[in-house]
Structures are given as structure tokens and as C-alpha cells.
Amino acid sequence: MVTIKELPQEEYLLKGHAACAGCGPSIALRLLFKALGKNVILVVPACCTSIIQGPYPYTSIGVPLQNILFESTAAAASGIVAALQQKKLEGVTVVGWAGDGGTVDIGIQALSGAAERETDFIYICYDNEAYGNTGMQRSGATPYGAWTTTTPTGKRERKKNMPFIMAAHRIPYVATACPSYPIDFVNKLKKAKEIRGTKYIHILAPCPTGWRYTTEKTVELGKLAVQTGLWALYEIEYGKFKLNSPSDRLVDKAKRKPVKEYLALQGRFRNLTEEDIAKIQKWVDEDWERYRKLASNYLL
């Protein structure tokens, strides 16, 4: 268990990058390097991070980075991992770093294939719940009721449960995280690095541009997502489900804040009716009933 102060001061996401002010994924990317250091090869599909790097001939990323086609993160990582194995090069961690569209929609096939092949890499989905780089269009990870440019009156369907889909691949490690809880994320990355096989980490990464809130609230919203139970921090290690702090203290509904506190801060949920909010609250409560069962020794 590290503390924030113990995290290394070296930066591999360099100042002056092209992310929007208050970018949640950028916080997560900084943390990634603090956890894994510089011996990382990053594979990035079309996503906000394609832009965050800045334009040729410069980049804001201090580790080798392969930009690759939208649906192909896990396939490119598979090729790189195979090459490193062939060269018997050890000590380099291959990390897929993709947005939610590139993961839960267009990239799910390659990711599912790589996971089934037990490819030795870490795949991270940084989820801002829409196609951010193209200006916020609905993705399979957009939650119910959220405004996007392609759901101008709010999405009618629920968010895809990608971590559970990955757990169904029987990979050794699945975890959720949020940059508002840096130590939790760093610990999960460090753990993932030591496990052989496919490791999947799904980060809820608040996005002021797309979620329609003022830039200073990124960390606050991440915390509210967790405190309301809309986003639970957990790990599924070799099929065993475990809630992590502070989510592990939220099994009792009374401990969770009402989802309204999270929703009300965001412009994208402005059109929600009280009925919608009640529905979302009900779904969250149902999710937690499932988490409770899973956490009490049910194997997923």
C-alpha cells in the first residue's frame, strides 16, 4: 500500500498536452505512469488520447506509444506482446489505453479475442461515457438518460456492463477504478502488472466537456459517482469478486448518497424527470444487491 506522497515525481504525461482543462482521463494517465514507470509500451486507438498527445513532430507522452486503428487496440497489443516474447524481452508492460467507444463498441471484438487468447497485457478503458473525441456522441457506455449529440433528449438504454463482460472471459484480473481514488487505481495497476495473462481495468473518467459541468468538479464528480454507488470500485481476481474501499463500506443503502446528488451536477442529465431519477436509483440499488451477493463469496 503506497501513499500519495510516495508516488514518484517523474512525469511521463508532459505539461502542455492537448487535453481539455479539467480532463479526467489525463489524471488517470498520469497515475498510470506513476504506477508502472517508464518500461511501458502504450497502444492507443482513436480516442481523446490521440489528441492529448499533441501533433507531430511532438508528443506529450514519454513512453513508446503506438497509435492504432479504432477497433484494434487489443490486436496491436497482441502483436507487440508476441514480438516481445519472441525477442525474450522481459520487464516491459504492454498497455492498451482506449476510450469507451473504442472498448465497449468498435473495439470489443479484438479485446474479446485477445482476452480469450490469454494475451499478457493490461487493457484499460478510460470511460467518459461517450465518443468524446468526436464531440460527445452516444456509446454503449453512455448511461441511461444522458444527453449526447446523438441522444439529444437523453439515451433510452442502459450502460453496457463491460467489466462483467470481461470477467466472463475468465481472465485473471478485472477491476474498476476512478482517478478520484488515485491510490486505489495505482494499487490495481501494480497488482495487474504482476499477473500473467489479460488484465482489464475499467476507469470511470469524468469529462467536463461532455458531461456539462464546470472543470473544477472532475474529481468531485468521480467521488460522487462512487459515493452514490453508481460506480463501484471492485476487483474480480481469478473469478473472486471483492469490493474495494470506499465502495466496500457502501453495501448498506443507508451509507450511499442518493444518485440525484451526482446527476444534478451535470448538464447532460438536465432532462431527467423525477421518474427517471427514481428508475436510476432503483437500478443502482439492484446492482448493489448483486454486489452484496458476489462479495459474500459468490464466484462470478
Partner: peptide, 30 residues
Amino acid sequence: CWIYCPDAAIERREDDSPKIDYDYCKGCGI
């Protein structure tokens, strides 16, 4: 403040207090 800065624009001084790099700080207010 250092760990939450999306822009890596806050450095830690020797006493761990923040040093904001105004050349790069985008002013998000986190």
C-alpha cells in the same frame, strides 16, 4: 493538488508544498 492536476502543472517543492507552473496550468480549478 499535485496528484489530481490533469496537466502535471503542479510540482512538489522540497517541503511538498505545490509549485504551480503557470506556463502550462490551464486553470481548471481542480
